[in-house]
């Protein structure tokens, strides 16, 4: 079975159960988006699927093999992860940061080509000599996205490569939010799987083939955007009253009010 698969996964952090019995599949060619309120366990579920957090129970597999069987270097060739926030130490340049993603074994010319293409894709090619820490937050986020894209751009071996993005649009302006999601879509069209955590429900509806809504560590709803973006689900997941409309090809949500405790 190819793709990233979680079966009945439970994750504990510091003795607290943050993900409870979650199952999901990220098949090659599909974009799956996790939504849910703060602290719902989205990043922890992503962490279990990336191999960073060992599940307390349940099974996580990558293309049919248990995730725990992979060494970090092998894992890095098959999936790349953009974390929520990356605090870079020392004054690395944009170009150097993008290169940190490169897998070993590329020729110099290949590496140069991969890095310049990745920087072009995130619209940072013109700033490749700049010191990363002197850029704005959104620009830094795009540099790290370029690094993650470079990680997956190694020589093709026929296996799908998966892209995992934790709030990739946070801090980005509107056009770069859309550009980031197009990159994710392009990655899926090229045969890879994409798992992304998004806070903006409308962006999620636009970007996703499947939305998975979490609350308090449990999956509340899972399905196509039109199936998940409903009054009932939004009320249950976010405690929010919302008006759901349709703007072809998909649904959109207009928040109305929140139920405060």
């Amino acid at each position: 079975m190819s793709g990233l698969v979680a079966e009945d996964v439970t994750v504990r952090l510091g003795g607290r159960e943050v993900v409870s019995g979650a199952s999901l599949e990220v098949r090659p060619g599909r974009v799956v988006v996790l939504i849910g309120p703060n602290g719902a366990g989205k990043s922890s579920l992503l962490g279990a699927l990336s191999g960073e957090l060992a599940p307390a129970s349940g099974r996580v597999s990558l293309d049919g093999e248990a995730l725990s069987a992979f060494r970090p270097a092998e894992l890095a060739r098959r999936r790349a992860v953009l974390a929520q926030a990356t605090e870079l130490a020392f004054a690395f340049t944009v170009d150097e940061v993008a290169r940190l993603g490169l897998p070993a074994g590329l020729s110099r010319a290949e590496a140069d080509a991969v890095v310049s293409q990745a920087l072009l894709a995130v619209d940072m090619a013109g700033k490749s000599r700049r010191i990363c820490s002197e850029l704005s937050g959104g620009e830094r986020q795009r540099v790290h996205l370029a690094r993650v894209l470079a990680q997956l751009a190694s020589a093709p071996d026929g296996r799908p490569r998966h892209l995992m993005l934790d709030e990739p649009t946070a801090g980005l302006d509107l056009s770069h939010q859309l550009a980031t999601l197009s990159l994710a879509r392009r990655h899926a069209e090229a045969g890879g799987g994409v798992l992304a955590v998004l806070h903006d429900v409308n962006l999620a509806a636009m970007a996703a083939d499947e939305i998975v809504a979490l609350k308090a560590g449990r999956i509340i709803a899972r399905g196509a955007p039109a199936e998940v973006l409903t009054d009932a689900v939004m009320r249950e997941v976010y405690d929010v009253e919302a008006r759901i409309g349709v703007a072809p090809p998909g649904p959109f949500l207009l928040p109305q009010s929140v139920r405060l405790v």
Partner: peptide, 21 residues
């Protein structure tokens, strides 16, 4: 050298990029 460069991103990101931290 490669591992130390990656660790500049933090230990999590270094692991994600293939380093046995």
């Amino acid at each position: 050298a490669r591992g130390l460069d990656a660790v500049a991103l933090g230990e999590r990101a270094a692991f994600h990029s293939g380093v046995d931290v």
